[in-house]
Design a protein around this nucleic acid. Structure first.
Length: 210
DNA sequence: GCGACAG
DNA sequence: ATCTTGTCGC
């Protein structure tokens, strides 16, 4: 099937992912999300500062041309994200993506894919677990638990708010686990990191042109 | 074979 | 993801 080809493409792409120490100072954080309406999708990109002020927001709408298939989310959504990103004037130092980074069957979740195409540091923050196992944790902001896939750590379950279930964080590209966790907490006020949460809200409210 | 399965 | 009001709990 066609998915076999895409699987190989992911296998190749993953060789370009770099899980390396993140040194840059983060003044601007980007967040993105895709919302749907019938057969159309809209990508939203927002840029916020460390005080959660929204400095810029851009949209990109187009027809949906790929179904949702677990493990292949980027083939459905990445064009919307790229489209919105290219309209930004401000370029974020780090980007939060709704979905996984290397916590993926082929270590090529949408956050990693986007990070490679944009050559930017990206962090994947999923609301639900795609794969792997982790030990139970206290629902106390800051507590975390490694998510293992075949005994290899690919991400962390991270509690960003007291008494609220964790989000599943994994490096996308050009960043390490520690920094991914650190910045996710730094930019989280509620369960979902603000950049992504805001992008999500903007998307639902957005009524753009075709 | 059966069940799980980001958005 | 999306369709959708009230409602339970911190």
């Amino acid at each position: 099937m066609e998915l076999k080809r895409l699987e190989k493409e992911q296998e190749n792409l993953k060789n370009r992912v770099k899980i390396i120490p993140f040194k840059k100072k983060v003044n601007l954080a980007g967040g993105c999300d895709v919302s749907y309406n019938k057969d159309r999708g809209t990508g939203v990109f927002v840029v916020i500062d460390r005080n959660f002020n929204v400095l810029e927001e851009k949209y990109f709408s187009a027809k949906v041309d790929f179904p949702y298939i677990p493990g292949f989310l980027s083939y459905r959504e990445i064009k919307f994200l790229i489209g919105a990103y290219n309209k930004l004037k401000l370029k974020p130092d780090i980007i939060f993506v709704d979905g996984n980074g290397i916590l993926h069957p082929r270590k090529m979740g949408i956050a990693s894919h986007l990070g490679i195409l944009l050559k930017k540091a990206t962090i994947g923050c999923a609301k639900n677990l795609l794969l792997g196992k982790f030990r139970k944790i206290k629902f106390k902001r800051g507590s975390k638990s490694a998510i293992k896939v075949n005994s290899e750590i690919l991400g962390y379950a991270l509690v960003t708010r007291n008494n609220i279930k964790p989000v599943f964080v994994s490096p996308g590209n050009l960043i390490d686990f520690e920094s991914a966790i650190k910045y996710t907490l730094l930019f989280s006020k509620f369960r979902i990191p603000e950049p992504v949460r805001i992008a999500h809200i903007k998307g639902k409210r957005y009524v753009g042109e075709k």
